[in-house]
Simulated assay, not measured.
Amino acid sequence: MTAQSRSEVFQDIAEAAERLMETADRSGHRQIIGIVGAPGTGKSTVAQLVAQRLGADAVVVPMDGFHLANTLLEGTPLRERKGAIDTFDIGGYLSLLRRLRSRDEPVVYAPTYVRGLEEPIAASIAIPQGTRVVITEGNYLLVDDAPWSALRALLDETWFVDTPQDVRLARLIERHVASGMDRATATAWANGPDERNATLVNSTRHRVDRTIRWD
């Protein structure tokens, strides 16, 4: 049996949310859950659906809020690789998760990422001290190279969103088109930079605790 096959598989969002609240009730401390998956798998949608099930008990904090701003990327080779692991502020992301783990502030503010604008927006998500569940989602939560490797100790569980390749690519292309790319450019980006990022993400899959099938 492989490490990947040992991870528990959730059949639907309701089951995932129910199990998460059971764990929070037993532990008595804030649960920080990391949802991982390649670009286009539906991580953001899964995170929001689980949070909706939990209501006021949960807040979603996306790793995408730590994208480097376009003004920093323009004119550099990173612009053609936006979304790659080295185009994120990992130091800022780690600092935020440590604050959320400490839970010693009345409220912590986190950034989000706006599709269409394609930029992070600072201090746009409020996480009150009483929030029992924080769901954070992103591509690289299980990368085992420093400094990314420090993330795993800050997460109570990690969930991998498993989506068929054809569905994932179609979603990515439509996302890029909606953000202003023409279809040819969107298709090239989905099969180029996005696919290279997906390869890295999928190489970390054996480290997950649970898997969600998401068609």
Rank of each mutant, 00 (worst) to 15 (best):
residue 2 T to D: 13
residue 4 Q to D: 12
residue 4 Q to E: 14
residue 6 R to S: 14
residue 8 E to K: 14
residue 9 V to D: 06
residue 9 V to N: 04
residue 9 V to R: 14
residue 12 D to E: 10
residue 13 I to G: 14
residue 14 A to K: 09
residue 15 E to S: 09
residue 16 A to N: 06
residue 17 A to C: 05
residue 18 E to C: 07
residue 20 L to K: 09
residue 22 E to Y: 04
residue 25 D to Y: 07
residue 34 G to V: 06
residue 36 V to A: 02
residue 37 G to K: 07
residue 37 G to V: 07
residue 41 T to Q: 06
residue 41 T to L: 00
residue 42 G to V: 04
residue 43 K to S: 09
residue 43 K to H: 08
residue 43 K to Q: 03
residue 45 T to W: 06
residue 45 T to M: 10
residue 46 V to F: 04
residue 46 V to A: 10
residue 47 A to D: 05
residue 49 L to E: 09
residue 51 A to V: 10
residue 51 A to K: 04
residue 53 R to E: 15
residue 54 L to A: 12
residue 60 V to W: 05
residue 62 P to Y: 05
residue 62 P to W: 03
residue 63 M to Y: 08
residue 64 D to G: 11
residue 66 F to H: 08
residue 67 H to M: 06
residue 68 L to M: 13
residue 68 L to F: 12
residue 69 A to Y: 13
residue 72 L to T: 12
residue 72 L to H: 12
residue 73 L to T: 05
residue 74 E to P: 00
residue 77 P to V: 13
residue 77 P to C: 10
residue 78 L to I: 07
residue 78 L to S: 12
residue 78 L to Y: 15
residue 79 R to K: 15
residue 82 K to V: 14
residue 83 G to N: 08
residue 84 A to M: 07
residue 88 F to G: 07
residue 89 D to I: 09
residue 89 D to Y: 08
residue 90 I to W: 13
residue 90 I to H: 12
residue 90 I to Q: 14
residue 92 G to F: 09
residue 93 Y to L: 04
residue 96 L to N: 05
residue 98 R to A: 02
residue 98 R to S: 05
residue 99 R to F: 08
residue 108 V to Q: 11
residue 108 V to F: 07
residue 110 A to P: 00
residue 111 P to R: 07
residue 111 P to Y: 08
residue 112 T to K: 13
residue 113 Y to F: 15
residue 114 V to L: 15
residue 118 E to V: 10
residue 118 E to N: 13
residue 118 E to D: 14
residue 120 P to S: 09
residue 120 P to C: 08
residue 127 I to A: 09
residue 127 I to K: 00
residue 128 P to N: 14
residue 128 P to F: 13
residue 129 Q to I: 13
residue 133 V to Y: 04
residue 135 I to M: 08
residue 136 T to I: 11
residue 136 T to C: 12
residue 139 N to L: 08
residue 140 Y to W: 03
residue 141 L to C: 04
residue 145 D to W: 12
residue 146 A to E: 14
residue 149 S to Y: 03
residue 151 L to N: 03
residue 151 L to H: 05
residue 153 A to Y: 01
residue 158 T to A: 03
residue 158 T to H: 04
residue 158 T to M: 01
residue 159 W to D: 03
residue 162 D to L: 06
residue 163 T to K: 09
residue 165 Q to V: 12
residue 167 V to P: 00
residue 170 A to R: 11
residue 172 L to R: 03
residue 175 R to Q: 06
residue 179 S to M: 01
residue 179 S to Y: 01
residue 181 M to G: 02
residue 181 M to P: 02
residue 184 A to W: 00
residue 187 T to R: 01
residue 188 A to T: 01
residue 189 W to E: 01
residue 190 A to S: 12
residue 192 G to Q: 03
residue 192 G to P: 00
residue 199 T to C: 04
residue 199 T to H: 09
residue 201 V to Y: 02
residue 205 R to E: 07
residue 208 V to C: 10
residue 209 D to Q: 05
residue 211 T to A: 02
residue 211 T to I: 15
residue 213 R to D: 03
residue 214 W to H: 15
